[in-house]
Write a protein that binds this DNA or RNA. Structure first.
Lengths: 182, 182
DNA sequence: CGGAAACTTGATCGAATTCAAATAAGGTGG
DNA sequence: CCACCTTATTTGAATTCGATCAAGTTTCCG
């Protein structure tokens, strides 16, 4: 069964034997949980809701059959795979080679651009829904809870972002991008 | 053009603007460079040889057409995608949540198991071809050159592995697995 | 033999973790 | 609406893992 997110935010999470967690991907409305992935379910990997979520599931067999018959569907699936792999590769690079501030800045910008694509963020005000808890950010960036808090405080103190009431506003897009070093 | 490795080792590498490098995947004979990936070439990502390499390339269009017509070929492609994504997810978790020794142990065990699958490693002696330089290991694990040397020296000193002459022997598989914490 | 890579080793530094409280924000039953 | 409890977040201090710096030493090859 492959879930497709219809509404709300979720995350696919890998949980280590010592209990620590790594978020592999934050799932927004329209995302398939782990594109091709859940064709061959991964040990230790699961999908968790961040907000309340509405979703539908597809049976693997149906999906497979449709892909072979429907060329258009196949093309869209391929695109989704490519996008997901590209994001996975970016994440690998972030975790392997970038500092805490860079990782967090990139996470925010990433989410912002994905929300924008879906018409779920205000292009003018740079405001977006932001239901992530610090522990989600920590698990997504491979950092500790405490350090996430420190970096975000610093961002806030220097007037780069404003956070409140499950929403986030990018006050200084330039500055944030400079930190994220594209 | 999507390259398929026929002989030798290669790596797909992402190079940051500051010159630091992250290996996304080490490619062994039989691997497609970035399975579906190179359908939509990634900025900043390239494939580099580690040893001398022999390879063939496929045109995207051909590959796409074949996938739609040939169900068996499609199934094998899907499997390759799944395997690659699974490995990418493991790498994300390694970089996000594991220590230097764990990462290096896992890299070695990973390579060993992939070589074994291809009949390219001795199951009895636990010996395998190992052409990686320390800088390759560093770039694959998100560590510094110097630290890789220190960790490997420690592994050698405690008799867990033996390294020499472009080959590596796992002397204490149990110990290595214990460090890698599956 | 000489020069360049590759590797090792020790010393020092720094980013991020862990530890430990304190404070703030939510949610619940009374 | 308030007291109470739980879950988030903040802040500071101490610690640690791994990076960086700086020489050495080895290995490889022409």
């Amino acid at each position: 069964m492959v879930p497709l997110i219809c509404e709300g935010w979720a995350a696919s999470v890998y949980i280590l034997s010592d209990g620590s967690r790594q978020i592999l991907s934050i799932l927004l409305p329209g995302d398939l949980a782990s594109t091709a992935l859940l064709f061959g379910a991964q040990a230790g990997c699961s999908v968790e809701a961040i907000t309340d979520v509405r979703y539908r599931t597809f049976a693997q067999a149906d999906l497979k059959a449709r892909l072979l018959n429907d060329a258009d569907c196949f093309a869209r699936f391929l695109r989704a795979c490519i996008d997901e792999t590209a994001r996975a590769d970016q994440l690998i690079t972030d975790l392997g080679r970038r500092t805490a501030a860079e990782r967090i800045a990139r996470l925010i910008l990433n989410l912002q651009s994905r929300l924008m694509q879906r018409g779920m963020a205000q292009p003018e005000t740079m405001e977006m829904e932001f239901p992530l808890r610090h522990h989600h950010i920590a698990d997504a960036t491979g950092l500790s809870l405490v350090h996430v808090s420190k970096v975000l405080s610093e961002f806030r103190r220097s007037g780069i972002v404003k956070i409140g009431d499950r929403s986030l506003t990018i006050l200084e897009p330039e500055a944030l991008q400079r930190i994220a070093l594209m």
